[in-house]
Computed example of a mutant assay.
Amino acid sequence: MPDSPRDPDSPRIAVFDAYGTLFDVHAAVARHAGAVGPDADRLSETWRAKQLEYSWVLGLMGRHAPFWDLTEQALDYALARYPGVDRALRAPLLDAYRDLDAYPEVPGTLRALRAAGWRTAILSNGDAGMLERAVASAGLADDLDAVLSVEAARTFKTAPAAYRLATERFGAAPGAVLFCSSNRWDVAGAAAFGFRPVWVNRKGVPEEYPDHPPDRVIGSLDALL
Rank of each mutant, 00 (worst) to 15 (best):
W68H: 14
D69N: 13
T71G: 14
Q73A: 13
A74D: 09
Y77P: 11
A78I: 04
A80V: 10
R87D: 02
A88W: 11
R90Y: 02
R90F: 14
R90E: 04
D95G: 08
R98T: 10
D99H: 06
D99N: 06
P104T: 01
V106P: 04
P107D: 01
G108M: 00
L110N: 03
R111G: 06
L113R: 09
R114P: 01
R114I: 11
A115M: 06
R119T: 01
I122D: 07
L123T: 03
L123P: 01
L123Q: 07
S124H: 14
S124P: 01
G126N: 07
A128R: 15
A128G: 10
A128N: 15
G129H: 13
G129C: 07
S137N: 06
S137Q: 00
D142V: 00
D142N: 03
D143Q: 12
V147K: 03
S149G: 08
V150W: 09
V150T: 14
A152L: 12
R154C: 14
T158Q: 09
T158H: 01
P160A: 02
A162E: 05
A162W: 04
R164T: 09
L165I: 15
G171N: 08
A173S: 08
A173N: 04
F179N: 05
S181A: 09
R184D: 06
W185H: 07
V187M: 00
A188Y: 03
A190F: 01
A190S: 15
A191L: 02
A191N: 05
